[in-house]
Nucleic acid binder design. Structure first.
Lengths: 230, 230
DNA sequence: GCATGACCTTGACTTAGGTCAAATCCTCGT
DNA sequence: ACGAGGATTTGACCTAAGTCAAGGTCATGC
Protein backbone atom coordinates (compact mmCIF):
# COMPACT_ATOMS: atom_id res chain seq x y z
CA UNK A 1 0.00 0.00 0.00
CA UNK A 2 1.38 3.36 -1.02
CA UNK A 3 1.55 6.52 1.04
CA UNK A 4 -1.73 7.12 2.89
CA UNK A 5 -1.12 10.87 3.01
CA UNK A 6 -0.91 11.00 -0.76
CA UNK A 7 -4.22 9.21 -1.12
CA UNK A 8 -5.95 11.48 1.36
CA UNK A 9 -4.71 14.57 -0.44
CA UNK A 10 -6.40 13.38 -3.64
CA UNK A 11 -9.76 12.68 -1.95
CA UNK A 12 -12.36 15.44 -2.31
CA UNK A 13 -13.43 14.94 1.29
CA UNK A 14 -10.03 16.20 2.38
CA UNK A 15 -9.51 18.88 -0.26
CA UNK A 16 -7.96 22.06 0.96
CA UNK A 17 -6.94 20.79 4.37
CA UNK A 18 -3.49 21.80 5.64
CA UNK A 19 -0.73 19.19 5.80
CA UNK A 20 -0.83 18.86 9.60
CA UNK A 21 -4.56 18.12 9.61
CA UNK A 22 -4.05 15.45 6.96
CA UNK A 23 -1.44 13.90 9.23
CA UNK A 24 -3.95 13.90 12.11
CA UNK A 25 -6.43 12.14 9.85
CA UNK A 26 -3.93 9.63 8.49
CA UNK A 27 -3.17 8.66 12.08
CA UNK A 28 -6.63 7.14 12.62
CA UNK A 29 -6.94 5.32 9.30
CA UNK A 30 -6.97 1.53 8.88
CA UNK A 31 -6.23 0.03 5.45
CA UNK A 32 -8.51 -2.82 4.32
CA UNK A 33 -8.72 -4.96 1.22
CA UNK A 34 -11.70 -6.78 -0.28
CA UNK A 35 -11.86 -9.47 -2.93
CA UNK A 36 -14.26 -9.51 -5.86
CA UNK A 37 -17.81 -10.34 -4.68
CA UNK A 38 -16.87 -9.81 -1.04
CA UNK A 39 -19.43 -8.04 1.19
CA UNK A 40 -18.19 -4.90 2.91
CA UNK A 41 -21.29 -4.40 5.05
CA UNK A 42 -24.95 -5.39 5.01
CA UNK A 43 -28.08 -3.31 5.51
CA UNK A 44 -28.90 -3.29 9.20
CA UNK A 45 -25.33 -3.91 10.37
CA UNK A 46 -24.01 -1.54 12.99
CA UNK A 47 -21.72 1.05 11.44
CA UNK A 48 -18.70 1.82 13.56
CA UNK A 49 -17.01 3.94 10.92
CA UNK A 50 -16.92 4.74 7.22
CA UNK A 51 -14.66 3.96 4.26
CA UNK A 52 -12.90 5.77 1.46
CA UNK A 53 -12.30 3.80 -1.73
CA UNK A 54 -8.65 3.84 -2.77
CA UNK A 55 -9.14 1.75 -5.90
CA UNK A 56 -11.51 -0.90 -7.16
CA UNK A 57 -15.28 -0.76 -7.62
CA UNK A 58 -18.00 -0.98 -4.98
CA UNK A 59 -21.76 -1.23 -5.34
CA UNK A 60 -24.14 0.01 -2.66
CA UNK A 61 -27.58 -1.54 -2.97
CA UNK A 62 -30.85 -2.69 -1.42
CA UNK A 63 -32.57 -6.03 -1.99
CA UNK A 64 -36.31 -6.73 -1.79
CA UNK A 65 -37.74 -9.73 0.01
CA UNK A 66 -38.36 -11.25 -3.45
CA UNK A 67 -34.67 -10.86 -4.27
CA UNK A 68 -34.81 -7.96 -6.71
CA UNK A 69 -31.87 -5.61 -6.28
CA UNK A 70 -31.73 -1.82 -6.61
CA UNK A 71 -28.26 -0.30 -6.83
CA UNK A 72 -28.08 3.10 -5.13
CA UNK A 73 -24.59 4.02 -6.26
CA UNK A 74 -21.42 2.62 -7.81
CA UNK A 75 -18.31 3.95 -6.09
CA UNK A 76 -14.77 4.09 -7.38
CA UNK A 77 -11.50 5.67 -6.28
CA UNK A 78 -11.64 8.70 -3.97
CA UNK A 79 -15.26 8.39 -2.87
CA UNK A 80 -16.41 7.95 0.74
CA UNK A 81 -18.85 5.15 1.59
CA UNK A 82 -21.04 4.42 4.57
CA UNK A 83 -20.98 7.82 6.27
CA UNK A 84 -24.65 7.84 7.23
CA UNK A 85 -24.37 5.69 10.40
CA UNK A 86 -21.46 7.82 11.60
CA UNK A 87 -23.77 10.80 12.01
CA UNK A 88 -27.28 9.40 12.47
CA UNK A 89 -28.50 6.24 14.09
CA UNK A 90 -25.98 3.50 13.76
CA UNK A 91 -27.22 0.98 11.24
CA UNK A 92 -26.31 0.98 7.56
CA UNK A 93 -29.34 1.85 5.40
CA UNK A 94 -28.04 -0.35 2.54
CA UNK A 95 -25.48 -3.05 1.73
CA UNK A 96 -22.10 -2.74 0.02
CA UNK A 97 -20.16 -5.29 -2.01
CA UNK A 98 -16.89 -5.18 -3.96
CA UNK A 99 -17.41 -5.70 -7.70
CA UNK A 100 -13.63 -5.93 -8.16
CA UNK A 101 -10.74 -6.48 -5.81
CA UNK A 102 -10.72 -3.16 -3.95
CA UNK A 103 -8.57 -1.32 -1.45
CA UNK A 104 -10.21 0.91 1.12
CA UNK A 105 -9.31 3.15 4.03
CA UNK A 106 -11.44 2.71 7.12
CA UNK A 107 -12.15 5.64 9.46
CA UNK A 108 -13.35 4.59 12.93
CA UNK A 109 -16.36 6.57 14.04
CA UNK A 110 -15.23 7.89 17.40
CA UNK A 111 -11.86 9.13 16.27
CA UNK A 112 -13.33 10.72 13.16
CA UNK A 113 -16.07 12.56 15.06
CA UNK A 114 -13.39 13.94 17.37
CA UNK A 115 -11.44 15.15 14.35
CA UNK A 116 -14.50 16.89 12.93
CA UNK A 117 -15.19 18.63 16.21
CA UNK A 118 -11.71 20.12 16.18
CA UNK A 119 -11.30 20.75 12.43
CA UNK A 120 -14.13 22.96 11.15
CA UNK A 121 -13.04 22.78 7.52
CA UNK A 122 -13.22 19.00 7.67
CA UNK A 123 -16.78 19.35 8.99
CA UNK A 124 -17.68 21.60 6.08
CA UNK A 125 -16.12 19.20 3.59
CA UNK A 126 -18.15 16.33 5.02
CA UNK A 127 -21.30 18.46 4.88
CA UNK A 128 -20.52 19.11 1.22
CA UNK A 129 -20.18 15.36 0.58
CA UNK A 130 -23.52 14.56 2.20
CA UNK A 131 -25.25 17.45 0.45
CA UNK A 132 -23.93 16.26 -2.91
CA UNK A 133 -25.24 12.77 -2.23
CA UNK A 134 -28.66 14.17 -1.33
CA UNK A 135 -28.61 15.96 -4.65
CA UNK A 136 -27.81 12.71 -6.45
CA UNK A 137 -30.58 10.88 -4.65
CA UNK A 138 -33.15 13.50 -5.64
CA UNK A 139 -32.11 12.87 -9.24
CA UNK A 140 -32.45 9.12 -8.80
CA UNK A 141 -35.93 9.51 -7.28
CA UNK A 142 -36.88 11.78 -10.16
CA UNK A 143 -35.58 9.24 -12.67
CA UNK A 144 -37.41 6.33 -11.09
CA UNK A 145 -40.68 8.16 -10.70
CA UNK A 146 -40.88 10.52 -13.66
CA UNK A 147 -38.91 8.83 -16.44
CA UNK A 148 -39.39 5.58 -18.29
CA UNK A 149 -36.54 3.13 -18.73
CA UNK A 150 -35.24 4.58 -22.03
CA UNK A 151 -35.15 8.04 -20.45
CA UNK A 152 -33.15 6.76 -17.49
CA UNK A 153 -30.79 4.94 -19.80
CA UNK A 154 -30.24 8.03 -21.95
CA UNK A 155 -29.56 10.08 -18.82
CA UNK A 156 -27.04 7.52 -17.63
CA UNK A 157 -25.24 7.38 -20.98
CA UNK A 158 -24.97 11.17 -21.05
CA UNK A 159 -23.66 11.13 -17.49
CA UNK A 160 -21.05 8.55 -18.51
CA UNK A 161 -20.09 10.64 -21.50
CA UNK A 162 -19.42 13.66 -19.29
CA UNK A 163 -17.53 11.60 -16.78
CA UNK A 164 -15.39 10.07 -19.51
CA UNK A 165 -14.28 13.44 -20.91
CA UNK A 166 -17.25 14.10 -23.19
CA UNK A 167 -16.47 11.39 -25.63
CA UNK A 168 -18.95 9.96 -28.08
CA UNK A 169 -18.05 6.41 -27.13
CA UNK A 170 -18.61 5.43 -23.53
CA UNK A 171 -17.50 2.25 -21.80
CA UNK A 172 -19.61 0.58 -19.14
CA UNK A 173 -17.64 -0.20 -16.00
CA UNK A 174 -20.31 -2.68 -14.88
CA UNK A 175 -22.17 -5.55 -16.56
CA UNK A 176 -25.45 -4.89 -18.29
CA UNK A 177 -27.19 -6.92 -15.61
CA UNK A 178 -25.81 -4.57 -12.96
CA UNK A 179 -26.71 -1.56 -15.08
CA UNK A 180 -30.29 -2.81 -15.20
CA UNK A 181 -30.31 -2.95 -11.42
CA UNK A 182 -28.87 0.57 -11.21
CA UNK A 183 -31.61 1.89 -13.52
CA UNK A 184 -34.38 0.16 -11.58
CA UNK A 185 -35.23 -2.46 -14.19
CA UNK A 186 -34.25 -6.02 -15.20
CA UNK A 187 -31.74 -7.31 -17.78
CA UNK A 188 -34.38 -8.37 -20.32
CA UNK A 189 -35.95 -4.93 -20.38
CA UNK A 190 -32.59 -3.17 -20.59
CA UNK A 191 -31.60 -5.39 -23.50
CA UNK A 192 -34.81 -4.54 -25.35
CA UNK A 193 -34.39 -0.82 -24.74
CA UNK A 194 -30.80 -0.88 -25.99
CA UNK A 195 -32.10 -2.63 -29.12
CA UNK A 196 -34.90 -0.07 -29.55
CA UNK A 197 -32.56 2.89 -29.13
CA UNK A 198 -30.15 1.29 -31.60
CA UNK A 199 -32.99 0.90 -34.11
CA UNK A 200 -33.66 4.63 -33.74
CA UNK A 201 -29.97 5.28 -34.37
CA UNK A 202 -29.53 7.04 -31.06
CA UNK A 203 -26.74 4.64 -30.08
CA UNK A 204 -24.64 1.78 -31.40
CA UNK A 205 -23.86 -1.00 -28.95
CA UNK A 206 -20.60 -2.95 -29.23
CA UNK A 207 -20.40 -5.09 -26.11
CA UNK A 208 -19.55 -2.76 -23.24
CA UNK A 209 -18.71 0.09 -25.58
CA UNK A 210 -21.64 2.26 -26.57
CA UNK A 211 -21.39 4.85 -29.33
CA UNK A 212 -23.56 7.90 -28.76
CA UNK A 213 -24.72 8.63 -32.29
CA UNK A 214 -27.26 11.36 -31.56
CA UNK A 215 -26.45 13.45 -28.52
CA UNK A 216 -29.34 15.83 -29.19
CA UNK A 217 -31.81 12.97 -29.41
CA UNK A 218 -30.43 11.38 -26.26
CA UNK A 219 -30.73 14.67 -24.41
CA UNK A 220 -34.33 15.07 -25.53
CA UNK A 221 -35.10 11.52 -24.44
CA UNK A 222 -33.43 12.08 -21.09
CA UNK A 223 -35.29 15.33 -20.50
CA UNK A 224 -38.73 14.18 -21.57
CA UNK A 225 -38.27 10.77 -19.98
CA UNK A 226 -40.33 9.19 -22.75
CA UNK A 227 -39.52 7.61 -26.06
CA UNK A 228 -41.22 9.19 -29.03
CA UNK A 229 -42.39 6.25 -31.13
CA UNK A 230 -40.97 5.54 -34.53
CA UNK B 1 -44.13 35.97 16.13
CA UNK B 2 -43.22 34.50 19.45
CA UNK B 3 -39.78 34.19 20.95
CA UNK B 4 -37.25 33.00 18.36
CA UNK B 5 -35.02 31.48 21.05
CA UNK B 6 -37.85 29.27 22.23
CA UNK B 7 -38.47 28.00 18.73
CA UNK B 8 -34.81 27.24 18.13
CA UNK B 9 -34.57 25.30 21.39
CA UNK B 10 -37.36 22.98 20.19
CA UNK B 11 -35.75 22.31 16.81
CA UNK B 12 -33.76 19.08 16.55
CA UNK B 13 -31.09 20.83 14.53
CA UNK B 14 -30.26 22.91 17.59
CA UNK B 15 -30.74 20.26 20.26
CA UNK B 16 -28.24 20.27 23.05
CA UNK B 17 -26.66 23.59 22.18
CA UNK B 18 -25.85 25.92 25.10
CA UNK B 19 -27.94 29.04 25.62
CA UNK B 20 -25.24 31.43 24.40
CA UNK B 21 -24.84 29.55 21.10
CA UNK B 22 -28.60 29.67 20.56
CA UNK B 23 -28.40 33.41 21.05
CA UNK B 24 -25.65 33.61 18.40
CA UNK B 25 -27.86 31.68 16.04
CA UNK B 26 -30.99 33.69 16.78
CA UNK B 27 -29.03 36.79 15.85
CA UNK B 28 -28.75 35.81 12.17
CA UNK B 29 -32.32 34.57 11.69
CA UNK B 30 -34.92 36.27 9.50
CA UNK B 31 -38.61 35.45 10.04
CA UNK B 32 -40.69 34.89 6.90
CA UNK B 33 -44.30 34.02 6.23
CA UNK B 34 -45.86 32.25 3.24
CA UNK B 35 -49.49 31.96 2.18
CA UNK B 36 -51.21 28.78 1.08
CA UNK B 37 -49.99 27.75 -2.41
CA UNK B 38 -47.11 30.22 -2.30
CA UNK B 39 -43.76 29.07 -3.76
CA UNK B 40 -40.82 29.22 -1.37
CA UNK B 41 -38.20 28.36 -3.98
CA UNK B 42 -38.00 26.61 -7.34
CA UNK B 43 -35.66 23.92 -8.61
CA UNK B 44 -32.64 25.61 -10.15
CA UNK B 45 -32.94 28.81 -8.11
CA UNK B 46 -29.81 29.93 -6.34
CA UNK B 47 -29.95 29.07 -2.66
CA UNK B 48 -28.53 31.77 -0.43
CA UNK B 49 -29.63 30.10 2.80
CA UNK B 50 -31.99 27.56 4.27
CA UNK B 51 -35.23 27.56 6.27
CA UNK B 52 -36.64 26.02 9.41
CA UNK B 53 -40.40 25.51 9.49
CA UNK B 54 -42.00 27.09 12.55
CA UNK B 55 -45.53 26.02 11.73
CA UNK B 56 -47.58 25.20 8.67
CA UNK B 57 -46.99 22.56 5.99
CA UNK B 58 -44.49 22.58 3.13
CA UNK B 59 -44.07 20.21 0.20
CA UNK B 60 -40.72 19.71 -1.54
CA UNK B 61 -41.14 18.22 -5.00
CA UNK B 62 -39.93 17.77 -8.57
CA UNK B 63 -42.01 18.11 -11.73
CA UNK B 64 -41.43 16.31 -15.04
CA UNK B 65 -41.58 18.09 -18.37
CA UNK B 66 -45.00 16.44 -18.88
CA UNK B 67 -46.20 17.99 -15.63
CA UNK B 68 -46.27 14.93 -13.39
CA UNK B 69 -45.16 15.75 -9.86
CA UNK B 70 -43.14 13.67 -7.41
CA UNK B 71 -43.16 14.87 -3.81
CA UNK B 72 -39.83 14.23 -2.06
CA UNK B 73 -40.94 15.22 1.42
CA UNK B 74 -43.67 16.93 3.38
CA UNK B 75 -42.26 19.19 6.10
CA UNK B 76 -43.96 20.49 9.22
CA UNK B 77 -42.89 22.32 12.38
CA UNK B 78 -39.27 22.03 13.49
CA UNK B 79 -37.79 20.63 10.28
CA UNK B 80 -35.07 22.33 8.23
CA UNK B 81 -35.58 22.81 4.47
CA UNK B 82 -33.25 23.63 1.62
CA UNK B 83 -29.91 22.92 3.26
CA UNK B 84 -28.34 21.24 0.23
CA UNK B 85 -27.31 24.42 -1.63
CA UNK B 86 -25.77 25.81 1.56
CA UNK B 87 -23.11 23.09 1.48
CA UNK B 88 -22.83 21.97 -2.14
CA UNK B 89 -23.22 23.82 -5.38
CA UNK B 90 -25.71 26.58 -5.01
CA UNK B 91 -28.87 25.63 -6.83
CA UNK B 92 -31.89 23.99 -5.22
CA UNK B 93 -32.31 20.42 -6.46
CA UNK B 94 -36.12 20.63 -6.05
CA UNK B 95 -38.95 23.10 -5.51
CA UNK B 96 -40.83 23.98 -2.32
CA UNK B 97 -44.36 25.28 -1.84
CA UNK B 98 -46.51 26.05 1.20
CA UNK B 99 -49.57 23.78 1.44
CA UNK B 100 -50.90 25.93 4.28
CA UNK B 101 -50.12 29.37 5.56
CA UNK B 102 -46.67 28.77 7.08
CA UNK B 103 -44.16 30.62 9.19
CA UNK B 104 -40.46 29.98 8.63
CA UNK B 105 -37.10 31.11 9.92
CA UNK B 106 -34.52 31.89 7.26
CA UNK B 107 -30.80 31.33 7.88
CA UNK B 108 -28.54 33.22 5.45
CA UNK B 109 -25.82 31.02 4.06
CA UNK B 110 -22.71 33.02 4.86
CA UNK B 111 -23.58 33.77 8.46
CA UNK B 112 -24.65 30.19 9.08
CA UNK B 113 -21.46 28.69 7.62
CA UNK B 114 -19.47 30.99 9.91
CA UNK B 115 -21.48 29.73 12.87
CA UNK B 116 -20.80 26.13 11.94
CA UNK B 117 -17.10 26.77 11.63
CA UNK B 118 -17.00 28.10 15.17
CA UNK B 119 -19.56 25.79 16.81
CA UNK B 120 -18.55 22.14 16.30
CA UNK B 121 -21.66 20.72 17.95
CA UNK B 122 -23.80 22.67 15.50
CA UNK B 123 -21.79 21.10 12.68
CA UNK B 124 -22.42 17.64 14.09
CA UNK B 125 -26.13 18.35 14.48
CA UNK B 126 -26.32 19.46 10.85
CA UNK B 127 -24.42 16.34 9.76
CA UNK B 128 -26.99 14.29 11.66
CA UNK B 129 -29.82 16.07 9.84
CA UNK B 130 -28.33 15.43 6.41
CA UNK B 131 -27.50 11.82 7.28
CA UNK B 132 -31.08 11.23 8.41
CA UNK B 133 -32.39 12.66 5.15
CA UNK B 134 -30.07 10.38 3.16
CA UNK B 135 -31.51 7.49 5.11
CA UNK B 136 -35.05 8.60 4.23
CA UNK B 137 -34.17 8.92 0.56
CA UNK B 138 -32.74 5.40 0.45
CA UNK B 139 -36.10 4.22 1.77
CA UNK B 140 -37.96 6.22 -0.85
CA UNK B 141 -35.79 4.81 -3.64
CA UNK B 142 -36.38 1.32 -2.27
CA UNK B 143 -40.13 1.93 -2.15
CA UNK B 144 -40.30 3.29 -5.70
CA UNK B 145 -38.15 0.56 -7.20
CA UNK B 146 -38.90 -2.55 -5.16
CA UNK B 147 -42.50 -2.11 -3.98
CA UNK B 148 -45.76 -1.83 -5.82
CA UNK B 149 -48.23 0.92 -5.01
CA UNK B 150 -50.17 -1.01 -2.31
CA UNK B 151 -46.88 -1.82 -0.57
CA UNK B 152 -45.86 1.83 -0.56
CA UNK B 153 -49.26 2.85 0.72
CA UNK B 154 -49.13 0.29 3.52
CA UNK B 155 -45.65 1.51 4.49
CA UNK B 156 -46.89 5.10 4.57
CA UNK B 157 -49.92 4.27 6.70
CA UNK B 158 -47.74 2.41 9.20
CA UNK B 159 -45.35 5.36 9.26
CA UNK B 160 -48.28 7.70 9.96
CA UNK B 161 -49.50 5.39 12.69
CA UNK B 162 -46.14 5.56 14.45
CA UNK B 163 -45.90 9.30 14.01
CA UNK B 164 -49.41 9.75 15.42
CA UNK B 165 -48.66 7.85 18.62
CA UNK B 166 -49.34 4.34 17.34
CA UNK B 167 -53.02 4.77 16.93
CA UNK B 168 -55.19 2.50 14.83
CA UNK B 169 -56.83 5.48 13.15
CA UNK B 170 -54.55 7.80 11.22
CA UNK B 171 -55.41 11.18 9.73
CA UNK B 172 -53.92 12.33 6.43
CA UNK B 173 -52.45 15.82 6.67
CA UNK B 174 -52.52 16.14 2.87
CA UNK B 175 -55.10 15.50 0.16
CA UNK B 176 -55.29 12.12 -1.52
CA UNK B 177 -54.06 13.69 -4.73
CA UNK B 178 -50.96 14.91 -2.94
CA UNK B 179 -50.53 11.54 -1.27
CA UNK B 180 -50.57 9.92 -4.72
CA UNK B 181 -47.77 12.24 -5.78
CA UNK B 182 -45.81 11.41 -2.62
CA UNK B 183 -46.15 7.68 -3.33
CA UNK B 184 -45.10 8.05 -6.95
CA UNK B 185 -48.49 7.35 -8.50
CA UNK B 186 -51.65 9.20 -9.62
CA UNK B 187 -54.96 9.87 -7.83
CA UNK B 188 -56.93 7.28 -9.85
CA UNK B 189 -54.55 4.50 -8.96
CA UNK B 190 -54.38 5.50 -5.30
CA UNK B 191 -58.16 5.52 -5.15
CA UNK B 192 -58.33 2.02 -6.59
CA UNK B 193 -55.71 0.69 -4.20
CA UNK B 194 -57.50 2.18 -1.20
CA UNK B 195 -60.63 0.41 -2.42
CA UNK B 196 -58.80 -2.87 -2.92
CA UNK B 197 -57.19 -2.74 0.53
CA UNK B 198 -60.59 -1.91 2.01
CA UNK B 199 -62.09 -4.94 0.28
CA UNK B 200 -59.38 -7.06 1.90
CA UNK B 201 -60.31 -5.54 5.26
CA UNK B 202 -56.83 -4.19 5.81
CA UNK B 203 -58.18 -0.67 6.24
CA UNK B 204 -61.40 1.32 6.46
CA UNK B 205 -61.39 4.71 4.75
CA UNK B 206 -63.52 7.54 6.14
CA UNK B 207 -62.49 10.65 4.22
CA UNK B 208 -59.09 11.67 5.53
CA UNK B 209 -59.32 9.30 8.45
CA UNK B 210 -58.10 5.79 7.78
CA UNK B 211 -58.68 2.94 10.23
CA UNK B 212 -55.91 0.38 10.26
CA UNK B 213 -57.90 -2.83 10.72
CA UNK B 214 -55.10 -5.36 10.23
CA UNK B 215 -51.70 -4.13 11.32
CA UNK B 216 -50.10 -7.53 10.74
CA UNK B 217 -51.44 -7.71 7.21
CA UNK B 218 -50.33 -4.14 6.50
CA UNK B 219 -46.85 -4.94 7.78
CA UNK B 220 -46.66 -8.02 5.56
CA UNK B 221 -47.81 -5.98 2.57
CA UNK B 222 -45.29 -3.25 3.32
CA UNK B 223 -42.43 -5.73 3.71
CA UNK B 224 -43.17 -7.87 0.67
CA UNK B 225 -44.14 -4.87 -1.43
CA UNK B 226 -46.75 -6.93 -3.24
CA UNK B 227 -50.41 -7.57 -2.75
CA UNK B 228 -51.36 -11.21 -2.34
CA UNK B 229 -54.45 -11.59 -4.48
CA UNK B 230 -57.82 -12.35 -3.01
C1' DG C 1 -8.97 -25.71 -28.56
C1' DC C 2 -12.82 -26.65 -26.51
C1' DA C 3 -16.07 -27.09 -23.01
C1' DT C 4 -18.45 -24.83 -19.12
C1' DG C 5 -20.92 -21.49 -17.21
C1' DA C 6 -22.06 -16.75 -16.93
C1' DC C 7 -23.99 -13.19 -19.45
C1' DC C 8 -26.98 -11.47 -22.81
C1' DT C 9 -30.75 -11.54 -26.14
C1' DT C 10 -35.24 -12.71 -28.04
C1' DG C 11 -40.03 -14.29 -28.11
C1' DA C 12 -44.66 -15.03 -26.22
C1' DC C 13 -47.39 -13.79 -22.70
C1' DT C 14 -49.15 -11.34 -18.44
C1' DT C 15 -49.95 -7.58 -15.47
C1' DA C 16 -49.55 -3.26 -12.76
C1' DG C 17 -50.68 0.85 -13.38
C1' DG C 18 -51.33 4.86 -16.46
C1' DT C 19 -54.86 7.52 -19.66
C1' DC C 20 -59.14 9.40 -20.79
C1' DA C 21 -63.75 10.35 -19.79
C1' DA C 22 -67.68 10.61 -16.99
C1' DA C 23 -70.05 10.63 -12.75
C1' DT C 24 -70.34 11.77 -7.92
C1' DC C 25 -69.00 13.92 -3.82
C1' DC C 26 -67.41 17.76 -0.82
C1' DT C 27 -66.27 22.24 0.57
C1' DC C 28 -66.78 27.05 0.69
C1' DG C 29 -68.26 31.39 -0.22
C1' DT C 30 -72.28 33.86 -0.89
C1' DA D 1 -79.20 26.39 2.22
C1' DC D 2 -77.30 26.67 -2.60
C1' DG D 3 -74.33 26.43 -6.34
C1' DA D 4 -69.58 26.37 -8.41
C1' DG D 5 -65.46 24.23 -8.72
C1' DG D 6 -62.21 21.27 -7.08
C1' DA D 7 -61.44 16.51 -5.26
C1' DT D 8 -62.40 11.80 -5.56
C1' DT D 9 -64.15 7.73 -7.56
C1' DT D 10 -65.30 4.48 -11.22
C1' DG D 11 -65.20 2.35 -15.77
C1' DA D 12 -63.13 1.06 -20.20
C1' DC D 13 -59.07 0.85 -22.34
C1' DC D 14 -54.00 0.90 -23.34
C1' DT D 15 -49.15 0.37 -22.67
C1' DA D 16 -44.64 -0.08 -20.36
C1' DA D 17 -42.38 -3.31 -18.47
C1' DG D 18 -42.14 -7.69 -15.88
C1' DT D 19 -42.22 -13.08 -16.17
C1' DC D 20 -41.04 -17.34 -18.07
C1' DA D 21 -38.66 -20.02 -21.26
C1' DA D 22 -35.31 -20.77 -24.99
C1' DG D 23 -31.38 -19.78 -27.41
C1' DG D 24 -27.20 -17.60 -28.40
C1' DT D 25 -22.66 -15.55 -27.27
C1' DC D 26 -18.52 -14.81 -24.98
C1' DA D 27 -14.69 -15.51 -21.91
C1' DT D 28 -12.13 -18.46 -18.88
C1' DG D 29 -9.88 -22.39 -17.30
C1' DC D 30 -8.45 -26.96 -18.27
Amino acid sequence: MKNVLGILAETSLFQGLPEDQLADIAAIVIAKEYQREEMIFSEGDNGDGFYVVVDGLIKVFKVSTEGKEQILHIFSGGEPIGEVPVFSGQKFPASALALKKSRMLFFPRGAFVDLIATHPSLALNMLAVLAMRLRQFTVQIENLSLKEVPGRLAAYLLYLSEEQRNRKVVTLSISKGQLASLLGTIPETLSRMLAKMSAQELILVKGRNIHLLDLVGLKALSDSGKMTDN
